[in-house]
Amino acid sequence: MSGYFRDIYTGGKSLLIGLGVTFKAIIKPVVTVQYPREKIDVTPNIRGHIELVRFDENDSRHNCLVCGMCAKNCPCGCLTVEGEKREGVKGKVLTVFDYDFTKCSLCGICVESCSRTALTFSSEYELAGFSRQEFHFDLIKRLEGK
């Protein structure tokens, strides 16, 4: 019989403690933000999709040697890199750098395998589109367009 009343006491007490916890939470400030209007600071180190690195600030040339290591090492096969020999230029010239973001798993192996640091991660994270084609990036165009 005493156990019966002890159960009621301990049970009731634990329930009141629980109510206390949630009551404290009502008073505390809200932790979420209204996303499209407010944004939280996103670290610049985020590994987004890849991007060709600019030669320097004002120069829209890039470092790529067309060695093809990135495309070769990519586990998802989402990179297409092509180059051609041109008169008067040493080595190959990059003509195609297609990047299929729909296949990419964002592992970063391409950036690591690049011997010239011609690739980098973008810190863009708000990517949305209506068709798949919007995520087939032409990185050369993106580089020039910027």
């Binding site: 949630t22 939470a25 009502i26 505390k28 400030p29 932790v31």
Partner: peptide, 13 residues
């Protein structure tokens, strides 16, 4: 609204 405040969200806004 109250559920949101208990869970420290905004709720409908």
């Amino acid at each position: 609204k109250i559920a949101a405040r208990i869970q420290r969200r905004w709720g409908p806004m």
